[in-house]
Design a protein around this nucleic acid. Structure first.
Lengths: 252, 252
DNA sequence: CGACAAGTTGACGCACGTCAAGGCCGGTGG
DNA sequence: CCACCGGCCTTGACGTGCGTCAACTTGTCG
């Protein structure tokens, strides 16, 4: 499928005991919804850091929900220029676009070891038929993705390099929060400066110099392929951040 | 609601006679689907060029489908920098994100006189409950929007100014095609160079110089707030365009 | 020990931004 | 009728934020 090892494991976590569902950020399911999802789930997929989950142009019979780990979606031009389009973390739905439209229009790669629930795309229609509330949730999730992309476009199109970096780091930290990735012994955001550059439309060198400025101002620290936020308020100020109300969100 | 006049008109076009539905690009409806949509529709909205349809931060009780005309979605930073995030044309759904998540995260403005079908967002859940095929369509539409945004991000982040302009014009021409806007006496794409600049993350002056290069190479022409494509292949080549399969698409 | 991935830093160049001025044209009002 | 204005496009001169090139460091893995 791609570089990096990968293996399919038998089901390890029952949906009823899904650790994500306990988090305050995610909405509760009715008993029957839970039963449907448990049946919808066909297995689990574990991949290493660097593994390709989905590849642009391919047809993939599966749909995933991230159980743990980080990843990113990206597109490439023929000559190798890469644009990271968004990041993926626990609770996110992966591969919906391919399920609906056939061919994937982007690739997905793991930033850390990941575990994903596997669903079959052929059963998606039955979800829509039998569980309108879940169908609504899926649309909600797609719509949330859309609004993240809008904001990322604003960032790449109209913010300066310094604002862009501040925004991106604050954005990732905020999402990590809401996905319940805080108190754990995860050391921070598992990205390299190359990822930052490819997300923000900057060169690696200029990205490095910009990050360094933020480090020198004690807004964040960088080490070992890991970024940690030290002064979130300062980042928000720099990035002209506007927080949105954060409602409990759905997840499949 | 915004600048520009605006008026609500009584229903003028019955869904069963919707001119869009006759186009090859849109999928056919069953009789009962059509009946539902006809009932879902609460009226029509006509606005002039320059009118604001939706405003960032506002709550709007409506959901729209574009019947005719062009518009665009945009976001702004506090200091006035503007980023156009996508364009809107016949057959597109407008305001879904606000319907699902409450507050609008972007604004929408008309590029030409527009007519829109008005739906009430409170009835969206009943659509999901009673017409899973329509719910599926809505999700499909959201997913299509997502893949357009992905591509726009790639453009703004990784293409050069010349590639960006070529890509954008080709993109708009292609969408206009598939929305059935060709043979009509519409003279072209109704945008100003300021719109192009705000879409591509460029300055107005540099945008102008870039467009001029394309005009001098007879790839397009510009006049009277209107852009016309003269050599689509050349634009595609320049933009490193990849065409996607174009399936019949849904529309509500 | 070499090889490679990730980060760092300085020197230099260019693609783009900014500033400034002017042209064209349709609309409005004297 | 002309005078004036504002929206849109155009062009030149000049400045700068970011890209490119190149070299070095550090850590890790074999």
């Amino acid at each position: 499928m791609g570089r990096g090892t990968e293996r399919r494991a038998a089901r390890q976590i029952a949906c009823s005991e899904c650790p994500l569902r306990r988090l305050a950020t995610f909405r509760d399911f009715s008993r029957s919804e839970l039963a449907f999802v448990a049946d919808f789930k066909k297995g689990e997929l574990s991949v290493d850091r660097g593994a390709s989950l989905l590849i642009e142009g391919a047809h993939n019979p599966h749909l995933y929900t991230v159980l743990s780990g980080w990843g990113f979606r990206y597109k490439m031009l023929v000559d190798g220029r890469r644009q990271i389009v968004n990041y993926i973390m626990p609770g996110d739905l992966v591969g919906l676009q391919g399920s609906l439209m056939g061919e994937m229009a982007h690739s997905v790669e793991a930033l850390s070891p990941m575990v994903l629930c596997v669903f079959e795309r052929d059963h998606l229609m039955s979800l829509f038929r039998e569980y309108p509330t879940l169908a609504y949730d899926i649309t909600w999730i797609a719509s949330r993705e859309e609004s993240m992309l809008d904001e990322n476009l604003l960032t790449v199109g109209r913010r300066s390099a310094l604002e862009r970096v501040a925004y991106l780091i604050a954005f990732l930290a905020s999402r990590a929060d809401s996905a319940g990735l805080v108190g754990r012994n995860d050391l921070g955001i598992p990205i390299t400066q190359q990822h930052v550059a490819d997300t923000l439309g900057l060169s690696l060198v200029h990205t490095n110099k910009t990050i360094r400025k933020l480090i020198n101002q004690d807004m964040l620290s960088w080490g070992d392929g890991n970024c940690t936020v030290l002064d979130r308020k300062a980042l928000h100020r720099l990035a002209k951040w506007r927080d949105e109300e954060r409602l409990p969100r759905p997840f499949i």
